[in-house]
Write a protein that binds this DNA or RNA. Structure first.
Lengths: 354, 354
DNA sequence: GTTGGCACTCCACTCTAGTGAGTGCTGGCC
DNA sequence: GGCCAGCACTCACTAGAGTGGAGTGCCAAC
């Protein structure tokens, strides 16, 4: 009934604009309480909340209004209220805010980044574990894209038996490899010669923009190797499209739901790296930080919410952090953790990839 | 009461030696049925099984004997029988056997290895997915150990801003990297010089056996870089101890149990790569192929069974396959899949790493 | 040793209150 | 008009009683 809807939207203030202060306070209380208890919240539990200094009867009538406006719902008559996706949305947009990370959490983050060592991949992997610990959500960390990183070094390494490895180092420290088959037993000199020509051809340009073959050397066997190497680089450039994903704390999903079916379908999604990466991408592209319930359009995650935070290095996007939990997840905590860890991670990546 | 136990073991035949043929057939039928239905099996459901041409009353008395001997158990009086861990053990050792992979499965394996491409890590990752699909279990694939692989190439690549990358290629095609910090802005020539000395020092020896520093060059700055590189190599050698693990199909664990708690604790274990790798290692070391229930000693996995299969390349162990499922998993299928995929994977690794 | 028969057990299910948290409504008060 | 105490009502949840049936153990007979 679009007519009725339009009517409402146009003439009744509360639907579009902010809710009346007390209703907002009540909604806030219901969401907060429900996030903590996972139980429907009754009017009695809300009367003592800040900003609500009225009787339970009045709260009830406000709750009924909030339900009419779609912020709350009842599992059944004569049960307490549960926030709807719209209710969570209002909470996140108008009420919650990032909220500070507690002292223990801040300490954990500091300690983590003080002791973080090793290569990027390892650090990202561990970061996902940290986030999961902090928020009790499943954490997803997408590594920096290497699309624009230029080639800093190319090397051909013979592995014996007609096999060689093309090893590429990008300016941001990423290393890619691809094995190529050689036509016949090749001596190291030819390999080195071909490697040199390959390097001259691609050094300084992004991996994705490698085209053509190196200039001919006059020796057919060397040219063949160089061409094979160039082909390998191209296939590496194409494969680089899908960024690396690190998922941590997927066991938290089992604790979040008591229906095994839900757990299974969520885990199934998490196993599909491509789906997850593009899901996070999509959410970011629509300009959201939090996607609640059906907002992200992935049906099996309808009872989940996702917090997304871009990781930027010097203003340039260099990865993404995602937190997956039930729609009744602790948004303030998740937002705070994502922000803090994202910032620190960005700094770290900046130090490494200058 | 060890005395009683000894007494039994020594003087009563059925406990140690094979069960009487019909009892074995009954046990076989119970296990098979229970694997399929997950419901306690009554005597009536067994009378039609091959090798059991007796009435249900006789089956009952045999079942009672099997229960006395510890092969079966009852959830409660007047319910059907469920196999104990010992019952599964007998089934696996004496009855089941690998059992052939069905046509669809064989086709799937063939297709997978025909189309498998890319580098080892990617293939191992996908192999875990394949195994999960085939068996409906969670699959674990441990990559080949690089402990004994000798260094084929070492390179120092400058990344700008006092940062350089040590890139090591091992003879089996594995690539390792580690960033090092340079004392001050260093020119490429010094980097190349140091790289050359580093290479001369370690080429041909296994990564884990890198000791000392390269021979001095006479230039202090070059020596410093070379020393830093050698230190990086040592730390890489140490880090190489824990092999790469790829877990596929962890969502299957959610389908296997209906207690969310169990699912959560199993997933928690799966997140700890080190634990999983050493668990598989331990099982192999005790000479087992299948570890059932408490046999592997990891308490949260008490209701799980693990099928382990070494992957060997030319007789040398080069990785491990593991399948994790509930104790009532389909052992013949899991064993068959593990064997077939393990063999094919071994062949593949052999082709690549010669 | 095997079998049909029989009494028994006990889970799973249904049905029936009874309980209580929570609601919507109403009439009176400020 | 907004607020509130009071009240009747709703309905999930729980406990207890009753029932059906799948399954067992035992026994006497073949």
């Amino acid at each position: 009934m679009p007519t009725t809807d339009d009517h409402k939207t146009e003439h009744l203030v509360p639907d579009e604009a902010d809710l009346d202060a007390r209703k907002a306070a009540i909604l806030n209380a219901v969401v907060t309480e429900y996030i903590g208890s996972a139980q429907p919240v009754g009017s009695q539990h809300v009367v003592d909340a800040p900003g609500v200094s009225v009787s339970s009867a009045t709260v009830r009538s406000d709750m009924a209004a909030l339900e009419r406006d779609g912020y709350l719902t009842q599992p059944h008559t004569s049960a307490g209220r549960i926030p709807t996706d719209k209710g969570y949305r209002f909470f996140v947009d108008q009420l919650g805010g990032p909220g500070p990370l507690d002292a223990g959490g801040r300490q954990q983050v500091r300690q983590f980044f003080d002791h973080a060592h090793g290569e990027i991949e390892e650090m990202l992997e561990h970061t996902s574990g940290l986030l999961a610990d902090l928020t009790d959500c499943t954490a997803m960390v997408v590594g920096p894209s290497h699309e624009s990183a230029v080639v800093r070094s190319v090397q051909l390494v013979g592995l014996g038996h007609r096999l060689a490895l093309v090893v590429v180092v990008l300016a941001d420290g990423a290393v890619r490899k691809q094995s190529i088959e050689l036509a016949e037993d090749t001596d190291d000199a030819a390999l080195a010669e071909a490697g040199g020509r390959l390097a001259a051809h691609v050094l300084g340009s992004p991996l994705a923009q490698v085209v053509g073959t190196p200039a001919p050397s006059g020796t057919a066997s060397v040219d063949a190797i160089a061409a094979a190497g160039a082909a390998a680089l191209r296939s590496l450039g194409e494969a680089d499209g899908h960024d690396q994903l690190f998922v941590g704390g997927s066991s938290r999903m089992a604790a979040a739901f008591d229906a095994v079916d839900t757990v299974r379908s969520v885990l199934t999604i998490l196993e599909q790296q491509l789906v997850v990466v593009s899901l996070l991408r999509d959410i970011l592209d629509t300009g959201l930080t939090v996607a609640i319930g059906a907002e992200h359009g992935v049906e099996p995650l309808a009872s989940c919410a996702i917090v997304v935070m871009p990781v930027s290095v010097g203003g340039v996007e260099a990865g993404t952090i995602g937190l997956l939990g039930p729609t009744r997840m602790n948004y303030p905590l998740a937002l705070a953790a994502a922000r803090v860890v994202g910032d620190r991670l960005g700094e770290r990546l900046g130090e490494a990839a200058r």
